[in-house]
Each structure stands twice: as structure tokens, then as C-alpha cells.
Amino acid sequence: MIEKRAAQRHRVFKGGTITFENSGIACTVRNISASGAAIDLDGPVMLPQSFTLSISRDHFIRNCRTVWRSDKRVGLAFVQ
């Protein structure tokens, strides 16, 4: 399998929050790199074109966009 990611991802299991339009949705961050992450959501959620991922225990906040989606897992790319 050919690796297409720009940066190597590291497996994690951390609680996070997706924020958009003054609302927050809990998620689980499953892997993360300098350029993106994969998260699990509890159920099907319509995400806007851009939103914010935060991991409060790490003081981590990044603007994101969805790159791919599979059932409850969502691949994110961090945007500037």
C-alpha cells in the first residue's frame, strides 16, 4: 500500500471537540500528525466545510477540513 500522507501519523486515543457555528460535538482523536488527524464520532454528523478541532488536555486547537469519511471515522486536514 502506498502512503499518501504528507506527515507520519501517530496513534492516540484522546477526547476532543469539534466546534462550528457556536456548537460543540465530542469526538475521539484516533491518530494525529502535523498535517491532519483521524477522529471517531458517536454518530452521523453533517460537518461544515471548515471547523475547529480542540484537545483540551493538550491545549491543542486547529482549524480543519474533512478529507475523507468512512462510517463514523473522519479524516481531517489542518488548514492555516
Rank of each mutant, 00 (worst) to 15 (best):
A26F: 12
C27P: 04
R11S: 14
L53Q: 03
G15I: 08
V45K: 15
F20P: 01
S70A: 05
T17Y: 08
G15T: 13
D40S: 14
C64F: 11
L76I: 12
D40R: 12
I18G: 10
I61L: 03
D58T: 01
W68A: 15
C27M: 13
H10I: 14
G16V: 10
V12Q: 06
R73D: 03
C27L: 10
G75R: 10
R30W: 00
L76Y: 06
H59N: 14
W68I: 06
F51K: 12
R11L: 13
R62Q: 14
F60Q: 03
A77I: 00
N31W: 05
W68L: 05
I39Q: 10
A38W: 01
R11M: 08
N22K: 15
S33I: 01
T28Q: 13
E21N: 15
I39M: 10
V45S: 11
D58R: 04
V74A: 13
D42Q: 15
K4G: 09
R65W: 02
D42R: 14
R11F: 04
L76N: 09
Q80K: 08
D58L: 13
I2R: 14
S35A: 03
M1R: 09
I55C: 02
N31M: 06
C27I: 09
N31R: 02
H59S: 11
R9A: 02
F13N: 14
L41P: 11
S35L: 05
S70Q: 10
F60I: 01
E3G: 03
T66A: 09
G24M: 12
R65K: 15
D71N: 12
P44A: 15
N63H: 04
A77M: 04
Q80T: 04
M1K: 10
D71C: 11
E3S: 13
R69Y: 04
F20M: 06
Q49E: 13
G75Y: 05
M1W: 08
I18S: 09
G75M: 04
T28I: 15
N63E: 01
F13P: 00
N22T: 05
A6F: 01
C64I: 09
A37L: 05
I55K: 03
I2W: 07
I61R: 12
I39Y: 06
F20L: 04
G15L: 09
Q8M: 11
K4C: 06
F51H: 05
E3R: 12
C27A: 15
V79W: 07
R62T: 03
V67N: 06
F20G: 06
K4T: 05
L47N: 12
T52C: 07
I55R: 04
T66N: 05
I32Y: 00
F13V: 02
T17M: 15
C27K: 05
A7D: 13
R69A: 14
S56Q: 12
G24P: 00
A7L: 00
F13T: 02
D40K: 09
A38Y: 02
V67A: 14
V29D: 07
N63Q: 08
R30G: 00
L41S: 11
T66I: 14
S23L: 12
K4N: 11
L41K: 09
I18M: 10
S70I: 04
R11E: 11
F60D: 00
S50E: 12
R5I: 05
V12S: 04
C27F: 07
I32F: 01
R9L: 00
R30F: 01
I2K: 15
H59A: 07
R69K: 15
A26W: 02
A26R: 13
E21R: 15
H59W: 03
Q80R: 05
F60W: 01
Q80N: 12
